[in-house]
Design a protein around this nucleic acid. Structure first.
Lengths: 357, 357
DNA sequence: CCGCCCCGCTAAACCGGTTTTCTAAATCGG
DNA sequence: CCGATTTAGAAAACCGGTTTAGCGGGGCGG
């Protein structure tokens, strides 16, 4: 008899039916006050608590939503952006009594973890609509909200104005007079050299080229003749401080006058590596971040960065998803595009007057 | 017929029993290869996918663990410590195919959210064993791991050497010659003025007093006569950059020469407020953090702080919890105490020679 | 006094799977 | 050729609740 008490145990002990016990917990008004009290007393006495899983099975809802991420929890949460996003999700979910569960790939397969996820809906971060492992999601009936994609059939999209943000960043550098610039894109997979073909990186790169006044066909961007010679290099790095440090190390032999990154944490890595190497920021090297996470204004110099409303993004994603879940249709759609803006702080300045090389 | 296909639909369509369908997915060896293929083909065709909830009900496990936090997700994730902890949890959980769900209070009640949590076990953060709302947890049969408590009956504990860490921080200040020090404790609830009675704050405060060579009875710590006059003030702040800024503002009229905090994010807030106010760090004001989150070495000056192995703590918590769940007994115990150590960086120095007042 | 409705509760169906028990047919050894 | 195993899958019980349909009795209006 050491097992967990079930609803039947309470019923027997209180001399009522299972229905009555269920009513006592969920629809008290269906019961005479005396009976209800007796049932609750018995339940308390034998330590009965309705099983959450059984409850959720019958209710056909889990009251949980999943945040699907393309990499391990370890890697993903190295980016302060994600913590901010979760804060935003929490704003909406805590209020609605919905729990957030993290859904990273399990043994390399994101399909597997989604398949097993105990959720009523999904928020997709860092995943493009044509991702091979998402066939199941595309055909499935689970409501989803996709973050930072161009469009997603049958799902709501929360995006930002990537192109404009990147354009402003690049224009800022151009106005300062930079002619030797490196763009650090985000490496989706460490093996993929860069992701210029589609998705967020492509959009932002387009914005950078536009802001620099470059033709878009200069895809490999070696040396490009503008007014003066303009040199644009593109690298892909992993999204972490380490990634930024690695990029700096790789560039140390032939440092540009400005580096524009697609993530503050990468920018911070570049900044720290530069400071460690005795390279002056912004005197010798200008750095631009992206996201405007809180830590972007904790550095010295504080980071010039493209601001996006991360928490608002999370809050909105949760709200759209919950709406879709409640409406019950499964398929839904619509795009919310949130504004970006360049925040000029201390990590950018004009390039050094005598540029070697 | 627009409803989601169930196991029975597949069975009927394939001309087999529900058992066979279940076997096809879970115990393929029990089935003839031909039959299995046919079942899987039918399942794929009609888009059948076993219901995760029903599965988990029958299995009597959710394959989820909860991270119970005492405040809203919004507030909790403002502290980079939490993101680091989650990274650690992920190291273990991702590998084991266990999902992590965040369990914040729902409408102010943490008991309610725990009651509804779809989990096999809980990790308790920032909660003391005598918390009034945890009666259910204490009596319940759910395995739990408590973080940063002295002891927890029937549960595993992962803790650090708080006292020694705080002692080292204080001793460091004493050696530098500071005689006017403020300690910023963590305000558990905004209304509670300080939490000196028990728990982590009490332990760390004890460590600080010890490191300063003060008698422990000087609990209200106004002015205290040591070798030279030693002034120790204690404040409680909320754990966020804002909390640190607020504390600085409150102290601006009567600034100490050193502030020791119980959280890096608070220290960063103090630092930023000081820099904004033109107060030199560490020249005029020394600041010590606690935790050594990554951001502690992103500031300038970099933060002197008490290091604790946060990710290791998370990893170990997850491991202990999963072990307890697998062992099935429910009750378990044991304490892992992880080391702390003072990391001296740039935010501490000797106090200014001519100390006004 | 009769029929109707409402109250308070029960029995049974249901949520959607897994697992145990069991049986018919096929295989095996002797 | 016969009894003992093994194989392949079916039937039914089970996981632990919620929900629907329904029933007996009391109060009410007519």
């Amino acid at each position: 008899m050491g097992r967990r008490p079930r609803i039947g145990d309470v019923a027997r002990e209180a001399g009522v039916s299972k229905t009555a016990v269920s009513f006592a917990f969920n629809q008290p008004d269906n019961l005479n006050a005396t009976t209800r009290e007796r049932i609750l007393a018995v339940a308390a006495e034998i330590g009965y608590r309705p099983s959450p899983i059984a409850r959720r099975l019958a209710a056909r809802r889990t009251d949980q939503i999943g945040l699907v991420v393309p990499q391990s929890t370890h890697d993903i949460f190295a980016n302060p952006f994600v913590a901010e996003l979760v804060r935003g999700l929490g704003d909406e979910c805590d209020e609605q009594g919905i729990a957030v569960v993290i859904v990273p790939p399990v043994r390399g397969s994101i399909a597997r973890s989604i398949e097993a996820a105990l959720v009523d809906g999904l928020i997709l971060l860092g995943l493009e609509p044509d991702h091979p492992e998402l066939e199941l999601v595309r055909r499935g009936d689970l409501p989803i909200v996709a973050l930072d994609v161009e469009a997603w059939d049958g799902a709501s999209v929360i995006a930002i104005d990537d192109v404009e943000g990147a354009r402003q960043a690049a224009a800022h550098l151009r106005e300062l007079g930079h002619r030797d610039i490196v763009v650090l894109l985000i490496a989706r997979h460490p093996d993929t050299p860069a992701d210029e073909r589609g998705g967020m990186s492509a959009r932002r790169l387009r914005g950078v080229r536009d802001g620099l006044g470059l033709a878009q066909e200069a895809l490999d961007g070696q040396v490009n003749e503008g007014a003066a010679a303009l040199r644009l290099r593109v690298l892909a790095v992993s999204v972490s401080e380490e990634g930024g440090r690695d990029a700096f190390a790789a560039l140390a032999q032939d440092l540009p006058t400005a580096i524009v990154t697609m993530s503050d944490v990468v920018a911070i890595g570049v900044l720290n590596a530069a400071l460690d190497a005795g390279v002056q920021v912004p005197g010798r090297l200008s750095i631009i971040g992206f996201d405007d996470v809180p830590a972007a204004s904790w550095t010295s110099p504080r980071l010039t960065t493209v601001h996006q409303p991360i928490r608002e993004k999370g809050r909105l994603a949760a709200r759209r998803l919950i709406d879709a879940i409640r409406s019950g249709s499964g398929r839904h759609s619509g795009t919310d595009r949130l504004p970006t803006r360049l925040v000029v702080r201390g990590s950018t300045a004009s390039p050094p007057v005598a540029s070697a090389g």
